[in-house]
Amino acid sequence: MRIYTKGGDDGTTGLFLGSRVSKADVLVDAYGDIDEAVSLLGVARAACRDDDARLAAILFARQRELFVAAADLATNPAHRDRLVPEVSLVTSAMVERVEQLIDELVAERPLRPVFIVPGGTPLSAAIDHARTVVRRAERHVVQAQDAGHEVSPLVLHYLNRLSDLVFVLARCAAGDDEEPASHD
């Protein structure tokens, strides 16, 4: 199997289920950001120690869900009816699972009511880096929508909740090793 197709040599990229768009299109930026977030969550997962098994499993599940969000965005709009829920189509159940996980984690470890300077631990810093990329993906999805692309509202909802979850995960990973942004 060849990894290169030469199809993108003209500055375009193929959408899932056909058609092509410019590689400079904001939609490509959006699902490119999601790809970057998947990788950064992988960096964070690789930094997990044996006693971080639960956190590693949560990160891995979010990586898989981000593939679904990217597929949802990268689909030829004429063929959205062919998408498969939770395989290539973001669902409300995915959003709800993220919300439930946030609620569970915050109940276990309440958030401090201060801004935190990221970097308490290498693991929390890696997770915070992923959070910033998820936020960028969210902004690019809004820009794609504003530019006229057909975007599922559930993709936007999912990314918004995910950035909140990733924030919470970073706080959990840091434990008590974080400093507030201001000195009181």
Rank of each mutant, 00 (worst) to 15 (best):
S39R: 13
A130V: 01
D33A: 07
S163M: 08
A170R: 12
V21T: 09
D50E: 15
A170H: 06
E99G: 03
R136W: 03
V155T: 13
V134I: 11
H129Y: 12
G8V: 01
A174Q: 05
V21R: 15
L154N: 10
A170L: 07
G7C: 08
D72T: 05
T132M: 11
A78M: 13
V106I: 08
D81I: 05
A144E: 01
P153M: 06
F67R: 12
A74Y: 07
D52K: 11
V43A: 14
N76L: 09
L123K: 02
F16E: 11
A24G: 10
D176F: 00
Q143W: 06
R2T: 06
A78Y: 15
T132I: 03
L111Q: 03
E179I: 07
S124K: 02
R62K: 10
N160C: 04
E108D: 06
D50I: 15
T121Y: 06
H183W: 15
T121H: 12
G32T: 06
A173P: 00
E86M: 05
V114H: 14
A144M: 01
R109A: 11
R97H: 06
R62M: 07
V166H: 11
V43W: 12
R161V: 09
S92K: 15
C172D: 11
G32I: 00
G175M: 00
R135M: 06
V155E: 12
H79R: 13
L15P: 01
R136T: 09
D35K: 04
V68W: 07
T121L: 04
Y31M: 00
V114P: 07
S92F: 04
